[in-house]
Amino acid sequence: MNIQGYLQIRDSFINGGLIISGFIVTLSLLLLLLTFLSHRRRTLRLHAEMIEKLLIATIMAGFLLIIYFHVGISRNVFISHPGMETVRFYVPPWIETEKLYFWALIISVIRLLSSPVDDLHIAGSRLILASFGILAVVSGSFSNPLPFFHREVMIWGLVRGSTDELQYLAYMVSRARYFYNSVYMWIHPPALFVSYAFLTMSLPGFIGMMFRKKTDDLSLIYRYLRPGYLFLTAGLILGYPWAVEAWRGSWWWDPKITGSLVMWAFYTAILHTMIYRRRLYRFTGITGMVSFIFLVYTYLLTYISTGVHAYG
């Protein structure tokens, strides 16, 4: 392992991230302000649109910086020991403090590719984007990158040359194999975050359904709910064999997994209420709101609950 190289790249990432963070927070606050003001002054809409595009571009640039940091990690953090194959750390860019950033990135991509026509939907999706922009920065994507991984590397640096080194290397090899480099880690969490992003973007449609009767709300919900549900199901399916492999039988009724299943049940219920949407119009809107609250709760379970997912 080249610990100096790792620390150097981490420092340059934090410094570069400081500039990106400043831009993201400023643009997000501006977008929030302009979205509220443009409701009364239509002339401000063009400004809001411009700021939104700038924010999306900045979030994407920030993600490129994250990728640069991760490539740096894979080059500098590796286990090389006589008689064994070199193990490099391919840390996925959607763990620890980068989760919300990845979520915000997918929201940006969705926002860039879609063009809602309804005023409520435009305002809603901008508020979502701006809020996630701020949350992505506040969560420490740039200021405190990968704190658990960093701690592991620092401990590794401390035990080097000591009698504990071999034991610690065995631990790090298992961390690389079953966690960071695991193929499931590269497909299960991103599928869920993509799903979260789509489901978040359907929120303005559900809010609309609570207060008015407009087909635009239904078409927006369908547009985002279908891919959101597909990715949610795929994410859950892909997580199962991983759980069986990594935790054997000690994860049944784990809070995070149960929460995800309950969330899936909520969105399955919505898909069924949509069949009889005329009769269950407002109920669908309310269920959509409750489902989103549960989505946020399920995400937070990693931090507020015990269980096998409680990594933080």
């Binding site: 009724w253 784990d254 809070p255 149960t258 929460g259 309950v262 049940a265 219920a269 209420t273 609950s305």
Partner: peptide, 20 residues
Amino acid sequence: FIVSLILFSATGIYGIYEYN
């Protein structure tokens, strides 16, 4: 079907509470 999903959800939420 929706009632069954709500029932399942309620059971799940209780499970999360008791687990914790």
